[in-house]
């Protein structure tokens, strides 16, 4: 049994979840508390990965990050290799797929925090960043954790965006969901069954975690 896809998937999903959590929670706070022009547009764009077919999302990521795009060239000049068809590409695809789950769930939780508790904290002299980190986010933590867990599940399970951006290179960019597809195509039922079972078990574990922490709807 080749464990490479599992290890790669765990690595990609962990890093992608970390990135999606940082940007998702930060974005959720901005959207929940900020009043600025373009807020509605930002929210819509951040939610696109939920409604776009993953292959379409992957296609646009290829357009934006490909070797001929300005971003792609900038990446290559800094890191010495292309972003697409690399593990980094898979991480970017998984991050973008996970982001809206972190963002929307965290935002709902942040909006449910009693604004009077935040007001009380302001009267104690806490600057805004301390109100955010020491009052709002701890009070919203259940929803924030649930969102991050959903983001992890999404990052671990992404097929379409990852295969478009990172390709299907066994031993290099072949993550679990892609390996399942590969095994089925090759008629290796035992391998497909094992990989699928592992993904299903992780998914159920994440849902149990989410249900335990979440009182906020997705």
């Amino acid at each position: 049994m080749d464990w490479f896809p599992l290890l790669l998937s765990l690595r990609v999903a962990s890093l992608a979840t970390l990135l999606a959590a940082v940007f998702g929670i930060g974005g959720a706070y901005l959207l929940a508390k900020g009043r600025f022009p373009g807020r509605g547009l930002l929210e819509a764009v951040a939610s696109l990965p939920i409604v776009l077919p993953p292959t379409v999302l992957g296609y646009y990521l290829l357009v934006v990050l490909g070797a001929r795009s300005p971003l792609g060239r900038a990446w290559e000049s800094v890191f010495g290799g292309p972003l697409v068809f690399s593990v980094s590409g898979a991480i970017v695809a998984a991050t973008i797929s996970a982001l809206p789950f972190c963002l929307r769930t965290a935002r709902a939780a942040i909006e449910q925090v009693d604004p009077r508790v935040e007001a009380a904290a302001r009267t104690l002299g806490l600057p805004e960043w301390r109100v955010a980190l020491q009052v709002t986010l701890p009070l919203a933590r259940r929803g924030v954790i649930a969102g991050v867990a959903l983001g992890f599940a999404r990052a671990l399970g992404d097929f379409g965006a990852t295969v478009m951006v990172a390709g299907n290179i066994p031993g290099r960019t072949q993550t679990m969901p892609i390996a399942v597809y590969d095994a089925v195509q090759a008629g290796d039922d035992a391998r497909a069954g094992t990989l699928a079972l592992i993904l299903a078990v992780v998914a159920v574990a994440v849902l149990l975690l989410v249900n335990r922490f979440s009182r906020v709807g997705v």
Partner: peptide
């Protein structure tokens, strides 16, 4: 002037302590 810079202390009808 922001609340933080007014040097007021406030007590509300409910205590609004941080539960965590």
């Amino acid at each position: 002037v922001r609340t933080q810079d007014r040097r007021v202390g406030m007590v509300f009808q409910e205590a609004l302590l941080l539960p965590h």
